[in-house]
Simulated scan of single mutants.
Amino acid sequence: MRGALTAPSARDPEVLERLDTAALVELCRRYQCHLHLAASTTTQAQDALANKIRDVESTLSTVVTNLTERQKSFAWYAEKLGHVSEVSHALSRCHASLNLILESLDALNTALPINERLEPFVWTTG
């Protein structure tokens, strides 16, 4: 049969008469059903993937929004911590200046005659 259909010189006119058209139609119908089933399965899989992608994108968008808000709040805290560091540094300078003043005060006090000296200055915090 294959030779009769492909070879133009060796055609047998009875080949087409011997073909069972009902079986050929049934084969084509089954093939069509198979292709339809495969297409339906593929469509369902694609729809499921599209839904999952939308879910992941939604979740990711929420996570990015939350992380952005956290980053903003941490930036605010970092700025406040910078202010605390500046105040701490200023306090340290004040303490160092106070110690120098106390040393100078003690030196001046010891330079005075004994009867004019003041009592030693004692710094208390509390």
Rank of each mutant, 00 (worst) to 15 (best):
M1I: 09
L5Y: 12
T6N: 10
T6H: 13
P8L: 03
S9V: 14
A10W: 01
R11Q: 15
R11E: 11
R11C: 11
E14Y: 12
V15I: 07
L16N: 13
E17K: 13
D20L: 04
A23C: 09
A23L: 15
L24C: 04
V25F: 10
E26R: 11
C28F: 15
C28W: 15
R29N: 10
R30Y: 04
C33K: 09
H34I: 00
H34K: 07
S40G: 02
T41R: 08
T43M: 02
Q44I: 03
A50T: 08
D55S: 13
D55I: 03
D55L: 04
D55W: 02
L60F: 09
L60A: 08
L60H: 01
S61C: 02
T62I: 05
V64G: 00
L67G: 06
T68A: 14
E69F: 11
E69S: 15
R70V: 11
F74W: 11
F74A: 06
W76F: 13
W76Q: 11
G82C: 04
H83K: 09
H83F: 05
V84N: 03
S85N: 09
S85D: 10
V87T: 03
S88K: 04
S88L: 05
H89D: 15
C94M: 12
H95G: 00
S97M: 06
L98P: 03
N99G: 12
L100S: 09
I101M: 09
E103R: 11
S104P: 01
D106N: 09
D106Q: 09
A107C: 06
A107E: 12
A107I: 01
T110W: 05
T110E: 14
A111N: 07
P113E: 07
P113A: 07
E116F: 15
E116D: 14
E119S: 14
P120Y: 01
P120V: 03
F121N: 05
V122A: 04
W123P: 05
W123A: 12
T124G: 07
